[in-house]
Nucleic acid binder design. Sequence first.
RNA 1: GCCGCUGUAGCUUAGUGGUGGAGCGAUGGACUGUUAAUCCAUAGGCCGCCGGUUCAAAUCCGGUCAGCGGCGCCA
Length: 449
Amino acid sequence: MTKSVWVSDVHDGAHDGENVELKGWVYRTRGSNKIWFLVLRDSTGIVQCVIKKSDVGEDCFEELKSALIESSVTLFGKVNVDERAPGGHEVVISSGKIIGEVNPENPFPITESAMESSDGGETEFLLDNRHLYLRTNRMTTMLKIRSSVFGAIHSYFRNLDFIEYQAPNFVAGAVEGGSTLFEVPYFPNEKNPERKAYLTQSWQLYAEAAMPALERLYTIAPSFRAEKSRTRRHLTEFWHAEMEIAWGGNADVMAHGESLVRNIASTLLDERSDELISLGRDIDLVSRYADNPYPRIRYDEAIETLQGMGVEIEWGQDLDYSKEKILTQDFEVPHFLTHYPRIAKPFYHRPDPDDPKYVLCHDLLAPEGYGEIIGGGERTWTEKEILERIDEEGTPREPYEFYIDVRRFGGVPHGGFGLGVDRVCSWLAGAEHIREVIPFPRDSRRVTP
RNA sequence: GCCGCUGUAGCUUAGUGGUGGAGCGAUGGACUGUUAAUCCAUAGGCCGCCGGUUCAAAUCCGGUCAGCGGCGCCA
């Protein structure tokens, strides 16, 4: 049953003149009643198969001719170098059969016309038929790019001896102050009829608990946000790559963030440049993101810049997307924004000892309007400071007792960041919408298929 | 939570008050090398749903449902 010949190997010339067995799905067909061209698709590409009635016989010819788009087939034939074939290689078939048929009364719904006006985007029809849309060239390409991004993140951290570490997805309280959490009934009982758990928004608090044990740790895991965001960069379930290091400050964490993102860009150039080109992505742009340093700008400078441009913004306000967009429109590479006002950020950010009006934090803003891809910084790490900050925010202490304990037993300076993996995929692939880079996107209005 | 836009055949769409058209796909036929093949024919429509105006509604009005886009929030 195992498959040994892949379409990409046929095009690479690995089987020229050989008899091979091909397994795959019908991509397109055309022809006459004497010669039939079946373009076969597998996970590595497409190849033209030539079926002549005189070679395969009447019965086989009629069977293969009846195979509709996305029928699965096995074909035997000889690999032939022929300039008339798309890609330069074709397979002249000697026999073959349909494995899984497609009923003519219910043909494969993802047609050329279904994708025609979508512009790589996401029509209602394509979203409803996502499970079938995955088989198309565009989605397959996106998923391959996504795989390389995940691989690059694992390689980056493992090469530096980071330990991959998993936190629970059911949690008792919020990480972000005031953000909306998904509630899940969690074994309510007589004592506690309303008992609930929440889906995690971040691995961070649990990573900090393991920081004194592992010192360098990372994860790639889903995070959940119950905000009804309707934008091209939000999902309710997204993949979060997070890291935490002991004995590191804001600048150290930022250095990792920069290296990681540049590493992802260069990995894509190595492994997926064909795919990027097929999506129409400008390779020079991706090279620029891989090769150039990412500047750091303090919050105060950003505010001054914006005010100088005539934007109405006051010191102390967080930078929303509309401001980010104005700020980043002239950026050629991602920029870090650092030292936000303490009042704009949650309690776990450490106040700057040089000026406690600010916290030691950073956001990494991607160019081309893709916005924030990293949020991170140095953590509040003494018991005194963390209690002070929790209280000043009005956050209850109880759910965070385990977190405060980290400071009570040998606290050390430490920090980390979270990177939105889907956002990075979307940005580097040049996607129109973050939904394009995840197989089954979840947003506030859609949980199916 | 707020603002905007769109629902016509399986898909993409034309149709501003008077018997709903096309392309793709499907089916049948023709064609010996096609490149999204081509040509001929056939089938396929509660014009999202409910109500109203009118002699007459896909078309005008009200409501409703669904979807999409944007803002706030963030990765």
